[in-house]
Simulated scan of single mutants.
Amino acid sequence: MRHQLSFACEGAALAASLDEAAGGTGLLIVSGGNEIRSGAHRGMAMLAARIAAEGYPVFRFDRRGIGDSEGANGGFESSGPDIAAAIAAFRAAAPHVSRIFALGNCDAASALLLHQPLALDGLIVANPWTYDGEAEEADEPALPPAAAIRARYLSRLKDPKSLLRLITGEVDFRKLFRGLSALKAPAAPAAPDSLAARIDGAIAALGAPATILLATGDRTAQAFMESCPSALSRLPVERLASPSHSFAGDDGEWLAERILAALK
């Protein structure tokens, strides 16, 4: 059964939803960007029902200034108090829950990493946002990461139509070689105060277990893989060959299965 409730965060009333279940391990879903707690196309609401049906209570909320919540929207970098208050509210609303894992996608994943330590037993971070600036401001970066460009070239070289264009001279070889040469240039290291560097440092300092989920065709995931390569060797990583940033459609079942595996 799903209940609507509210809780306080620094003087503001925040709206929340609790999908009840009998299990002692719960899932806190933190919304990314400026999405409300139901998620894109109600994706998070459906995910919550799916996880709760397996016996795990699920708590979702709108941070300050988003959806039905009061206060000013300060973006993901100022959402630490919101997340901490949501954890406390989850425990109060479901006192039988002894362990809480948190799921965040995009800048919600980055928020969970940056605002540690939090009273959580584990993290599930999907497609962490590493571009400086709010995700809502640049969800389609002007310049794709080198990994995205490389993947594009490889897919085209596997396409018979593209190969035919090469043979018939329809492709500008000078442009092609310039693009391939640019990929050989070493990537500039992230500035120490950049979001990517701070997320990499946060992962290195994590005190709770965590799993990284990546849709390998998604630009945000590709940028994370390129700018935080050492993080991929520190934490378990699950990869899905999909361009869906929000794990839409059939990808939602893959996401649910990985969450359930982490909760167990």
Rank of each mutant, 00 (worst) to 15 (best):
R2E: 12
L5R: 13
S6D: 08
F7Y: 10
C9K: 02
G11K: 12
A21L: 10
G24Q: 15
G24C: 04
G26F: 09
G32Y: 06
I36D: 09
G43F: 03
M44V: 00
I51D: 12
Y56A: 10
P57E: 12
V58Y: 13
F59M: 09
R60I: 02
F61T: 02
R64Q: 08
S78R: 15
A84I: 01
A86R: 07
R91D: 05
A94F: 10
R99T: 11
G104W: 05
S110Y: 03
A119N: 14
D121V: 06
G122L: 09
L123P: 06
N127M: 07
D132M: 10
D139C: 03
D139G: 00
P145G: 13
A146D: 15
A146I: 00
A147W: 04
A148L: 09
R152V: 00
Y153C: 01
S155T: 11
L157M: 14
K158P: 00
P160T: 01
G179Q: 05
K184C: 14
P186Y: 03
A187M: 04
P189L: 06
A191M: 06
D200M: 03
A205Q: 09
T211F: 01
T216Q: 12
G217E: 11
D218C: 15
A221I: 06
A221W: 08
F224A: 07
A231M: 08
R234D: 03
P236R: 00
V237G: 09
S242G: 07
P243M: 12
S244Y: 05
S246V: 07
A248N: 09
D251A: 14
E253C: 08
I259Q: 02
L260T: 05
